[in-house]
Design a protein around this nucleic acid. Structure first.
Ligand SMILES: [Zn+2]
Ligand SMILES: [Zn+2]
Ligand SMILES: [Zn+2]
Ligand SMILES: [Zn+2]
Lengths: 163, 163
DNA sequence: AATTTATTTGATAATGATTCTCATTTATAA
DNA sequence: TTATAAATGAGAATCATTATCAAATAAATT
């Protein structure tokens, strides 16, 4: 039941626009897929609560509303959403994949390994340096993963107090 | 038998210093572990051939020399080596972990998704920008993952020819 | 509304990577 | 040598994810 290795418990809930069912219906149609209750529930789950969720977490949220939904459906739809770019898969180390509704702006992540806080940042300098590196090697860049790991201020403070 | 998703077949073999068994013996002792033939074989496997190998690949190389070695031993020792920093674990997307003898200089990776070529690069500007980002969020940076994905010149050319 | 049909679903099995268990073997210190 | 804690290997276990397939169903067509 418990996931292996590091867990990422507390993440602040990010303020988000109102859940817009008809927009989600539209996205599903764009993908040439059928609109089902399950798929709307999955969207709902992605839209509320913490921004970066695992497939299991999505499954649990969906399952709480409709106990009949199977996790295969969740995995399957998350995969489609990722392929179409509506959802972005984020992988940190050997942990299980996390998903977020693809944000308007590209960003990368800074994760606290003590408390699981995830901060999002965008840094155009880094982005263009990446392009430059790729060009130097004659590569056409298609994607990248930039994940920073460390300890946030609160956790660093807490550790100091203890010792 | 075949690994899932993308395979990384061709990687240029990187020129390396002579295999120095006594140095490896010393490293093992530094870790407070016992020197065994298996462990020396694993070091040998990491030292020859392509730079970034999976546990399975290490196992196969070791197994070719001594068919009695079990894969648990390989995984176990790779883990110890990683914990002590003698080996660096590199994870690319959802693929299985790859390992390399920790290089003298830190570097990140640029991977061709068509042919599997892996280029290593170091970019101090990016590194220090990462530090700056972490500092802005009040984080103490402990590690990071920067993996660039794309298509190398050869593969891009090959694709153009085909179409 | 009823019919049709290609999709979707959920239960379950299968997979691939990695880790764990434990009885047996072995490196090393005394 | 002998003692002993550590290491090993075979296989089971785990975890995340994907595949299979019969039954259910969205949506297009009568
Ligand atoms: Zn980025
Ligand atoms: Zn994010
Ligand atoms: Zn780096
Ligand atoms: Zn490398």
């Amino acid at each position: 039941m418990k996931s292996s290795s590091i867990n990422l418990p507390a993440e602040k809930i990010i303020k988000r626009e109102k859940f817009d069912e008809s927009a989600f219906r539209q996205m599903i149609r764009t993908m040439n897929l059928k609109v089902t209750d399950q798929r709307l529930l999955i969207f709902e789950a992605l839209h509320s609560g913490r921004a970066h969720v695992t497939a299991q977490e999505v499954f649990e949220k969906v399952h709480a509303v409709d106990g009949a939904v199977g996790f295969a459906t969740v995995y399957r739809f998350l995969r489609s959403l990722t392929e179409y770019g509506f959802v972005t898969e984020v992988r940190m180390g050997g942990m299980s994949a996390r998903y977020e509704l693809t944000p308007k702006r590209h960003h990368d992540h800074l994760t606290c390994m003590s408390c699981g806080k995830i901060c999002e940042f965008e840094n155009h300098e880094i982005e263009s340096l990446q392009e430059r590196v790729a060009a130097q090697f004659g590569f056409e860049l298609t994607s990248h993963v930039l994940e920073l790991y460390g300890h946030c201020r609160d956790c660093t403070k807490a550790k100091l107090k203890k010792s």
